[in-house]
């Protein structure tokens, strides 16, 4: 990772959100993120098993054999498309198979489906990162979060939402199309009421929702969409 010698103040610790479904497969990863990289990891309930490293980037972990098996292809493409609806940047960490203790590592069999998936993913703008195992993946996640922080996209809102009314407002923001979890959190912290958000300009949505101009335009249009 980079030294921050050129920037005046050292950046604060980065925050990563993780779906609760990842817990069972990611205990070691979480430990490493916290212990080795000083990352604040928050577990929450997302719409799939993925990580959020900034207000615009989601990361999924997959094993090489996941990508090589034809029966996984449809599910993977559905996942990627749904993430692309919510995030501007998608990253897949492809992990080497872990060999069980005492067993020799089995060489990975490259399949046509594997090659074809990799090419399609690259062509659709998904970033692929390659990892030799859990600790390597933790390092990559931390690097991604730090990179996004340097670019001004770090997760910087409180990730807890207290009170029944704020919780309910958050649920409504989460149901808006193309609004991801971090952006919904930003909305619930930056707007004084649901009505204020609904009546906001594109610019106010962009700033308050921590989103790109085009996403803010999409939300603005949606809030005014007339059902006939």
């Amino acid at each position: 990772s980079h030294k921050s010698s050129e920037s005046p103040a050292p950046p604060g610790p980065v925050c990563i959100l993780m779906d609760s479904r990842c817990i069972s497969s990611s205990v070691e990863l979480m430990t490493s993120l916290r212990r080795d990289h000083g990352v604040t990891v928050h577990v929450c309930s997302l719409d799939g098993s993925y990580f959020i490293v900034s207000n615009r980037m989601a990361v999924e972990r997959h094993s090489q054999s996941d990508l090589a098996a034809l029966q996984n292809r449809k599910r993977l493409s559905e996942r990627v498309k749904s993430l692309q609806g919510l995030f501007e940047r998608i990253c897949l960490i492809v992990e080497k198979e872990r060999s069980k203790p005492g067993e020799a590592a089995r060489p990975f069999q490259r399949t046509r489906c594997y090659d074809s998936s990799l090419i399609s993913l690259v062509r659709s703008g998904v970033r692929l990162l390659w990892s030799s195992g859990t600790e390597d993946s933790a390092g990559l996640l931390a690097d991604l979060a730090q990179l996004e922080q340097r670019k001004g996209h770090a997760i910087s809102v409180p990730v807890e939402v207290k009170g029944q009314h704020r919780q309910q407002a958050l649920q409504l923001y989460l149901s808006l199309p193309s609004v991801n979890h971090v952006q919904a959190l930003c909305m619930s912290h930056n707007f004084s009421s649901v009505a204020q958000l609904i009546n906001s300009s594109v610019e106010a949505l962009q700033t308050g929702g921590c989103m790109s101009r085009s996403r803010a335009e999409e939300v603005h249009r949606f809030l005014r969409h007339s059902c006939d």
Partner: peptide, 16 residues
């Protein structure tokens, strides 16, 4: 491309 985000119109009424 199975991984490319569909840019066609989604029906908005059910989403509203």
């Amino acid at each position: 491309n199975p991984f490319r985000r569909r840019s066609c119109f989604q029906l908005l009424d059910p989403l509203v």
